[in-house]
Nucleic acid binder design. Structure first.
Length: 792
DNA sequence: GTACACGAACTTTTT
DNA sequence: GTTCGTGTAC
């Protein structure tokens, strides 16, 4: 293992007997350069030395980046395995791979060093694990494991974990790791953290990780940096090896990532960072805008290239976004421009409350879908609702469910984070390595085996006393009959299970089959089959999904590694659906039509962000606003509600300060629908202080009376239209005919979101169901299934 | 040791 | 409105 030699590894296979210049001679034509604008071309062709590409939203950033790599390869400057290309998300990495392949044809055998910071670090760390006292098969803890471990430490110290919760310590330690601080390096200014015990607990935590042969997310970076700093020879090899380094989304790098990059770029100094300071929205996670602002100082002689021509949005949308972001103090400054012709103004509308906002957006989506807005009909895939915080999503889900509008939530609870997936993974982990204590702990008593706290404490104690892993400890407990007969038997059975499964694993039994066997024999599948809760069917479905996913891997180990690193779940792409997601999740995406609801002070900008980070916080929120607006290609609709239900009580709020920053000439104020239902109308809009504060929107609002406002006209037009053919009607008719009232009153049914319930009323395609958990709801029949037809 | 019921606290964003 | 954790009853 220590015979570390790059030459032996496929990822370090250099062409023999051919000098670089010779390869350069063999350069092929460069058709991929055609169609680039001058700035993009410069970004692609400035290959040597440090380069910072400041790429505004929608300026062809990814294109420049991938073309640059294609160019490096095509000119023979580097082999695919000599290029280090880092991204933040697996999705971005995947997309880059695809697009490079497209440029260069099939000639690339894959780029082993194109990936996320984390996945590349795992690769590096597995090679050099022993240098930081780890074994090469170390496990990567997920957040859940991390919290549980910290909780144990806190409790062992006799600290009240109510007052000092493990979550708090976890985020503290994460923050330190983001700044590349090991326990010794945490500055004394942090000494008072976590009741003055922070640093000490951090140290203990690191000790425990070492014993467990485990690392957390932050460690992946930290350990590699440490190896580079302590072992010059190793660093030098990598510095030599990576001829060219490319970094995507540079504005999102934290200090640890920055140091990592700087170390690796120290040799050839061919580092190209692409980013947009205006889209730095991960400050709370340790990202340092400073990294991008300082680039020229860090890398002397750096060339800075600005991509400013926007290919995505109409001029009004672009101008609105620019107007907002201009209010930020600390930015490098870019002036986005476009050739596109005029298009619609950004639309702004206020509502009485959050439910009305959801209702209005629902109708708006339907009318866009039908092309009733005077525009061409637009597919649901082309529309997105971008919210600040995930809890805002529920209002839309509820509404869309009721009217039967297909939607898709992007980036919700991730697949691998789900309870049942974690449990299943824990079984696999113990099977693979019997000393994975955290995993063992997780499942000793899941499903219930009568091995409660007392039994677990006994196992832990025995394991510790004998200096062995928990599974071995459990073996001793069984052997010496340290527990009641029933518990002993249960434990014996579990141990025998693991013995059997790991034997099968060693024997090379098919891993997909093995996974099924483990889940069945352990009783885990039955556990959920017997569970009566509404989530149970979904969980079983997820388990099936998990086993299916195993097919794509050669063995369970590879799969475990994949899951611990791949944060995104494969989104089902089928069917036309509106997307609902957070602004953060929307970065990098674009949609013809974008809705931005909830622009109210306190919600957006978020109160918490302002409280915690003051002006810096507001600036980051403003960048978030900028990201939101620039997602829109053709139509961008911003809205706010005067009242919103928070927890259980009503709270009224003022429109977001960002609304004031929208340039009046690029905004069209729509009249709220309440106008013709009575209640909240144009007058009320004008009454809300702030909406039009000092921006000239005031006159606009004043003019936006019932009959003149384009908003009203549209409203009236739609009302008429509705009379003849309601948008959702056509679609529902099909459903009606296909499934002519498949239900009857009193029947027990299942609904994806609300669970089980009994039908109390049927009215056309709408069914009223008294749900056991969710209460009485009126839903579209196609969204519920008869009890005996639950899909699993 | 488990099952259920009640109460508290929480909601930003996540590689 | 939820989820999580604690307390009580079996």
């Amino acid at each position: 293992m220590n015979g570390w030699d790059m030459g032996e590894d496929e990822t370090f296979d250099r062409w023999e007997g051919e000098s670089l210049s010779a390869r350069a001679m063999a350069a092929r034509p460069t058709p991929y350069l055609d169609g680039l604008n001058p700035a993009q071309r410069q970004a692609v062709e400035t290959l040597d030395g440090p380069v910072l590409v400041l790429a505004g939203a929608g300026t062809g950033k990814t294109r420049a980046l991938t073309t640059r790599i294609a160019h490096l390869l095509n000119t023979g400057r580097a082999q695919p395995n000599e290029i280090l290309a880092v991204t933040f998300t697996n999705k971005a990495a995947r997309e880059m791979k695809e697009r490079i392949g497209h440029h260069v044809g099939g000639m690339i055998e894959g780029m082993p060093w194109l990936g996320t910071f984390h996945s590349i670090c795992v690769k590096l760390l597995r090679r050099h694990a022993e240098l930081v006292d780890l074994k090469t098969n170390f496990t990567i803890l997920d957040t859940d494991d991390q919290i549980r471990l910290l909780k144990q430490i806190i409790q062992a110290e006799g600290i009240d974990d109510k007052r000092w919760p493990a979550r708090m310590l976890a985020s503290l330690i994460d923050g330190w790791k983001n700044r590349c601080w090991t326990p010794e390096k945490v500055p004394s200014s942090e000494a008072s953290a976590f009741n003055h015990r922070g640093t000490e607990l951090f140290e203990q935590y690191q000790e425990r990780l070492k014993v467990l042969n485990a690392v957390d997310f932050g460690d992946l970076l930290l350990h590699v940096v440490e190896i580079f700093q302590k072992h010059e020879d190793i660093l030098a090899k990598y510095q030599r090896w990576f001829r060219y380094i490319l970094v995507d989304e540079y504005q999102d790098t934290n200090v640890a990532q920055y140091l990592w990059l700087r170390l690796l770029a120290g040799g050839h100094k061919n580092i190209c960072c692409v980013g947009d300071d205006d889209q730095s929205i991960y400050g709370w996670r340790g990202a340092e805008v400073g990294n991008i602002l300082r680039f020229e100082k860090d890398f002397p002689g750096a060339e800075v290239i600005r991509l400013e021509q926007n290919y995505r949005s109409t001029p009004h949308i672009l101008a609105a976004a620019s107007g907002v972001i201009a209010a930020n103090e600390s930015r490098l400054g870019k002036t986005l421009w476009t050739d596109a012709s005029d298009g619609e103004k950004v639309r702004l509308i206020g509502h009485w409350d959050g439910e009305e906002e959801a209702r209005w957006i629902g109708e708006e989506v339907e009318s866009m879908q039908n092309g009733t807005r005077g525009l061409d009909p637009m597919g649901l895939d082309n529309m997105a609702i971008l919210v600040r915080a995930s809890h805002q999503m529920r209002a839309f889900e509820d509404r869309f469910l009721t009217i039967g509008l297909p939607y898709r939530v992007i980036g919700g609870p991730r697949f691998y984070e789900r309870l049942e997936i974690r449990d299943a993974m824990a079984y696999f982990r113990v099977t693979v390595s019997s000393d994975d204590g955290l995993a063992f702990e997780r499942i000793v008593n899941t499903p219930k085996r009568g091995l409660g706290d007392k039994a677990q404490q006994m196992i832990n104690k025995v394991a510790r006393d004998n200096g062995v892993g928990p599974l071995e400890g459990a073996r001793i407990v069984v052997r010496d009959k340290l527990l009641a007969a029933r518990a002993t038997n249960a434990l014996r059975e579990l141990i025998e299970g693991f013995d059997r499964w790991s034997a099968m694993l060693t024997a090379g039994h098919d891993h997909v089959e093995l996974a099924e066997i483990i889940l069945d024999e352990s009783g885990y599948t039955d556990f959920w089959k017997n569970d009566k809760s509404p989530e149970a069917p979904g969980r079983l479905e997820n388990l099936k999904e998990l086993v299916k996913a195993l097919n794509e891997f050669e063995n369970i180990q590879g799969f475990l590694e994949h899951v611990s690193l791949v944060m995104d779940n494969g989104q089902e792409q089928e069917g036309e659906k509106v997307s609902i997601m957070t602004l953060h999740a929307a970065k990098g995406l674009e949609f013809p039509a974008v809705f931005l609801p909830g622009w109210e002070d306190g919600l957006f900008p978020s109160q918490r962000s302002m409280d915690e980070s003051g002006l810096k916080g507001v600036e980051e929120e403003r960048r978030l606003a900028y990201v939101g607006i620039t997602r829109a290609e053709e139509v961008c609709t911003i809205s706010f509600a005067a009242n919103r239900r928070v927890y259980n009580q009503w709270q009224s709020s003022l429109p977001s300060r960002f609304i004031d920053e929208l340039p009046a000439e690029n905004v069209e104020v729509l009249t709220p629908p309440g106008l013709y239902g009575g209640g909240f109308g144009a007058a009320a809009t004008a009454e809300i202080p702030g909406v039009m504060r000092g921006s000239g929107l005031q006159e606009k609002a004043a003019r936006a009376d019932a009959y003149n406002s384009p908003g009203w006209k549209r409203m009236a037009a739609r009302a008429q239209h509705r009379g003849t053919r309601q948008p959702s009607e056509a679609r529902n008719m099909v459903i009606d005919m296909e499934a002519a009232s498949p239900f009857e009153i009193g029947e027990r049914v299942f609904h994806q979101k609300f669970g089980y319930g009994r039908i109390t009323d049927i009215e056309g395609d709408k069914v009223t169901v008294d749900f056991e958990k969710a209460g009485t709801k009126r839903v579209v029949a196609s969204y519920i299934s008869a009890e005996d037809q639950i899909p699993f």
